[in-house]
């Protein structure tokens, strides 16, 4: 199962900056980027190792692939390259929801739909007669909406934008970002064995919470815990060992999934979550975990 992440957002929301950040901070993870946009990819020239027909190989092991043969063909060829994660940059007018459906294909696992919004213009653009409905659909498809460029707004306007996004897109978790610096953790997800643990590219705006328990947790306990998860959790990932095989747990925004993964070996329960620094209260999570994950009597 290759994690499959979709990054959407209209022109100017900060997707290209984000992609380059991702490539520079892959830290040993083999990322495969699918670019569904026209124009220069603007990849740091120093990173480029070789070019093939529709593909650019980077010196850090990552690859960029264009979609000129169509999405299906691109995903098929990428799956063969066995990357650690596939990240799709949706074009500024793409139907993000439909693209995300590829993440449910048999070899892939939808790891999140992240839609970037330019906090300064999103409210006006969402009413634009040409692209308004497209932008609304994109935001509605998001697990996480990154309200980017918040630094360009005063405090009162910041609050207005966040509240507007929360009201109109209740299914998404809203994450503010400043200076165009989109938190990489949101895109990369959390990893139980975090290859990227040593560096964080200066975006240390996250609180990380983890929980480990050798035994005594059942699927129902887990479901209870997830039902009481505080909304400040942006992402959560974990594994749970059960007599009939391992379960993999994934939470992105408000989308929760517990899936059988017998091919994975796990011991007890392991959970890792992230949230925005200052918003996510680890104590609250500890309390909930203590309540639902009681050790064997």
């Amino acid at each position: 199962m290759i994690p499959f992440t979709v990054i959407g957002g209209y022109l100017g929301a900060g997707k290209t900056t984000l992609l380059n950040e991702l490539l520079r901070n892959a830290n040993g993870r083999k990322l495969a980027l699918l670019i569904n946009d026209f124009g220069e990819i603007n990849i740091d020239a120093l990173l480029i190792e070789s070019r093939e027909d529709n593909r650019i190989n980077l010196s850090n092991g990552c690859i960029c692939c264009t979609l000129s043969d169509g999405f299906h063909a691109a995903i098929e060829s990428l799956t063969e390259a066995a990357p650690d994660q596939i990240i799709v940059e949706a074009s500024g007018v793409a139907d993000v929801h439909t693209l995300a459906q590829y993440g449910h294909s048999p070899q892939l696992q939808l790891d999140g739909v992240i839609v970037l919004a330019d906090a300064e213009t999103v409210r006006i653009k969402s009413k634009d007669k040409f692209v308004g409905r497209t932008i609304q659909r994109q935001l509605a498809a998001a697990d996480i909406i990154v309200a980017n460029k918040m630094d360009l707004l005063d405090k009162a306007t910041q609050a207005e934008v966040i509240s507007w996004l929360e009201t109109h897109y209740p299914a998404a978790v809203i994450c503010p970002a400043i200076n165009g610096q989109v938190p990489l953790h949101l895109v990369m997800g959390v990893h139980l064995v975090d290859k990227a643990a040593t560096t964080d590219s200066g975006h240390a705006h996250f609180t990380r919470w983890s929980w480990q328990q050798p035994a005594g947790v059942g699927v129902e306990d887990l479901q209870q815990f997830l039902a009481h998860l505080p909304p400040e959790v942006l992402r959560l990932k974990g594994t749970l060992s059960q007599p009939d095989g391992t379960r993999v747990i994934q939470v992105v925004g408000q989308r929760q999934e517990i899936r059988s993964a017998p091919e994975i070996t796990a011991e007890g329960l392991t959970l890792v979550a992230i949230g925005v620094e200052g918003q996510l209260e680890c104590a609250q999570l500890d309390q909930a975990a203590g309540r639902f994950f009681k050790p064997d009597p």
Partner: peptide, 10 residues
């Protein structure tokens, strides 16, 4: 003139 994902500029 435009294919989603074409590399290169116009």
């Amino acid at each position: 003139g435009i294919m989603p994902g074409d590399s290169g500029d116009c």
